[in-house]
Write a protein that binds this DNA or RNA. Structure first.
Lengths: 189, 189
DNA sequence: GAACTAAGTCAACGAGCGACTACTTATCCG
DNA sequence: CGGATAAGTAGTCGCTCGTTGACTTAGTTC
């Protein structure tokens, strides 16, 4: 909707590249790599299909770059957010409160049947949770406990944002956050 | 590997149908619906591609039936297993201890960018957790708490079985189960 | 305003896809 | 044994895919 400007844009390489990336992100989350054609992406971006190859070289490189976008936020959060606030902030982010792109995390996870997407997601999760959150914890199994927090957030994001099971979909975010806080209390210390 | 018998099978409609379903299940978990062709399925099953249409009518119907397989076990578990044992049993099932098909749950979840798969998964999860587990709980938010348990199991299955983050992949199952039990204690009562 | 370059367009290719049909072969019943 | 019927095969249709290269147009520089 907002990625396809009504052709008002003048010749602008950077803007065209960005429009392709945004369109790729949206369609990647909705239909995965194999389920999205370069023609679909170009159409949503309001751009000629051949420009995918001018700016990215291949479909795979376009999606690899698109997948990386939006997971950057987790990095700064796991590094800086006070442990007591972290579960709620991760949850808000995963549930995309007011984000421009709907449910990027759940979209990426359901796109993880593609090798390249899988690699991007793994790398980002390990960086945020193993390398930044785990060292802030104390006690045994620090990396495992950090990844278990990631798993909880991921599971909720997927069931609510993608699968759409009824209780998680209709529950308000505060109710979910209450339980997540109690779960996280058994993992973060 | 084991779904493609070395052509020893005699003419047997039921066995051919079953071989197609098993092959479809494996490839669905690995590459999703759009990432798998009917020719791929037939080749893995050791069977002619046209038989997909003889026995299932369409690619979509084949995958719909294949997706349903293997989620049946959750049904009986959420109905009958003592609450104290349930988390461990769900986890074992999700992590596929000695199962013939690797990680079916995580495979199905990552195939959930397809509408039809999404519907099958949602229906199965709601049946097992909302309709069978939730009524066995007491207190507020019974369905939400039941679905949160599903989310935890799902998240772990996806990160360990599909994304492959390092701590969850290398941790032994007992260590994970210990934390899952403590998490579940905040949800099941 | 002409020359140059960057941005965007167009049409086509080979390959693979889902789907279908007409044909051949094995198996079983009388 | 011999025909009927179910099981399996081979080939093909129309279409979409990713990718490419030759082309046109817009914007900038002298």
């Amino acid at each position: 909707m907002d990625t396809a400007e009504p052709r008002a844009r003048r010749r602008d390489a950077a803007a065209t590249r960005e429009a392709l990336l945004n369109a790729a992100r949206t369609l990647l989350s909705e239909h995965g790599v194999e389920g999205t054609s370069t023609r679909d992406v170009a159409a949503l971006a309001g751009v000629n299909q051949a420009l995918v190859y001018r700016y990215f070289g291949s479909k795979e490189k376009l999606f690899a770059e698109a997948a990386g976008r939006g997971l950057d936020a987790a990095d700064t959060m796991t590094a800086d957010t006070p442990l007591a606030d972290l579960p709620r902030e991760l949850l808000d982010r995963a549930l995309d409160v007011g984000a421009e792109h709907p449910s990027h995390l759940s979209g990426l996870v359901t796109a993880a049947n593609d090798d390249m997407i899988r690699a991007v997601v793994r790398e980002r999760i390990e960086r945020a949770f193993d390398e930044q959150l785990a060292p802030r914890l104390s006690g045994a199994d620090r990396e495992l406990r950090a990844e278990l927090l990631a798993a909880v957030i991921t599971g909720i994001a997927v069931l609510r944002g993608k699968v759409g099971t009824r209780a998680l979909t209709t529950a308000d975010r505060d109710a979910i956050a209450g339980y997540v806080d109690r779960i996280a209390a058994t993992l973060l210390h």
